[in-house]
Design a protein around this nucleic acid. Structure first.
Lengths: 108, 108
DNA sequence: GCTTGATGCGTAGATTAGCTACATGTTGCC
DNA sequence: GGCAACATGTAGCTAATCTACGCATCAAGC
């Protein structure tokens, strides 16, 4: 998968992962990897800045904790984030329709 | 639809539009607009550089012609472009699976 | 005691594709 | 004369992702 195919789609994916339970960065990475069937192996240099961006934008809230001597920053969805996620899902459907309308991917 | 959601997906879409018939830039714009149900209204500053990029990469070949006093540059798919399009379609399917695996868009 | 891998957070700098805004010219219609 | 549609193109900006680092803890293996 090309790198910047993700562009603009990563944010809702991150929000989706913390939708039902707050997670810390590393766990978010793992959740993305798992949910994507091993395809989405984000480098930390992508994830952590994205998390800070989302927090700065008000879609995530974070909290520090220490587990087994390791510091974790746990992120949870804010209500603004929840709205953002919902509209992100909607936008994905539109985007998918646009691409498939043009691409006709069935016709290999 | 956010602007850079397109990132990395535009190229195969352009190739798909000229798959069965060569078209000039303006006609490609219109075809994209039509196939996307009016959603994909590319600015010329996006399309024309993209076409030149694809030609430079060997996926498209162009030819000048004059129709009704207007100069047109008509693009057609090369064999390399055809392969690129096929793999682009495949990548799209993977990408879609990844996003939907993470996003679960059904659960609004 | 040492090394290695997994866990965990983070920044700096480069890349690059899509965008806005602009420039140029023709045709046809009011 | 003027405006919309047709038609191509460049210059410069933006911003999200990537690569490549740095730092620290813990557990396992030798």
């Amino acid at each position: 998968m090309k790198a910047d195919a993700l562009r603009g789609h990563l944010d809702p994916m991150i929000l989706a992962v913390v939708e039902h339970e707050p997670l810390h960065g590393y766990a978010i990475m793992e959740a993305l990897l798992q949910r994507s069937g091993g395809e989405l192996d984000l480098p930390t240099g992508t994830l952590y800045p994205a998390l800070r961006r989302l927090e700065r934008a008000g879609y995530l809230a974070s909290e520090w904790s220490t587990v087994g001597g390791r510091k974790r920053r746990t992120y949870q969805l804010t209500s603004a984030g929840s709205k953002m996620l919902a509209s992100g899902k909607q936008e994905w459907l539109t985007f998918r329709a646009v691409v498939e309308g043009v691409l006709r991917p069935g016709q290999a």
